[in-house]
């Protein structure tokens, strides 16, 4: 009996042992940037922990009047083009460029207002000092305006499971960029 238990334990442990030997992060992965994010539930996590799943990433801020609602729409529009299986293999991350105002409460209100599926969508803020570095690896340019709004490039960035940039589009709206969608489908295609 004891031997069986030990065997069972060993079998249970093996996957953990195998996983504990990490594959090195590719040099061109955005997860090379050591950034901590705080999501809509107040949970703090390392950006690099998103590794392992294909990601759709964009930068936004909650008090945006103009285009940021369109960023959410654009993300949803891409999702609609996917099969349920592909959708399940895609994580969507919106990173705020306005961490001072985009507290977990502000982020939660957007999730609620736009009826975002928490299983797939994460809204998070970096620390203020890290915003420009995140923007740097994603190729986003932005400027804080005097009234708290931002001038910024709007883009959707597709990352592979290791954080390498596969595709990028600046075409926002409910009619997604077909080339970008094709890249997303290719990345989330099953084995």
């Amino acid at each position: 009996m004891k031997r069986l238990l030990c065997l069972l334990l060993l079998v249970a442990c093996t996957p953990v042992l195998a996983a504990s030997k990490p594959v090195p992060l590719p040099r061109d992965s955005v997860y090379q940037l050591p950034v901590q994010l705080t999501d809509q539930d107040g949970r703090q996590f390392a950006w690099a922990s998103r590794r392992g799943k294909v990601q759709l990433v964009a930068m936004f801020y909650t008090s945006c009047q103009y285009i940021c609602p369109l960023i959410v729409d654009s993300g949803k529009a891409v999702e609609r083009q996917l099969t349920p299986a592909e959708r399940a293999r895609l994580g969507i991350l919106l990173v705020s460029m306005d961490p001072k105002r985009d507290t977990p409460a502000a982020l939660t209100s957007i999730v609620a207002k736009r009826k975002l599926d928490r299983a797939r969508w994460t809204l998070a803020s970096p620390s203020p000092a890290d915003v420009r570095e995140v923007a740097g690896v994603l190729g986003i340019r932005y400027r804080a305006l005097a009234d708290g709004e931002f001038n910024h490039i709007s883009a959707l960035v597709l990352l592979d499971a290791n954080g390498r940039i596969l595709a990028r589009t600046e075409k926002m709206g409910s009619q997604p960029d077909p080339e970008f969608v094709a890249a997303v489908r290719h990345a989330t295609a099953g084995p």
Binding site: C64, Q65, Y66, I67, C68, R143, L145, E149, F150, N151, H152, I153, S154, E170, M172
Partner: peptide
């Protein structure tokens, strides 16, 4: 180009 750079300014 307001659409490209989101917003005024």
């Amino acid at each position: 180009d307001n659409a490209k750079f989101c917003g005024a300014g």
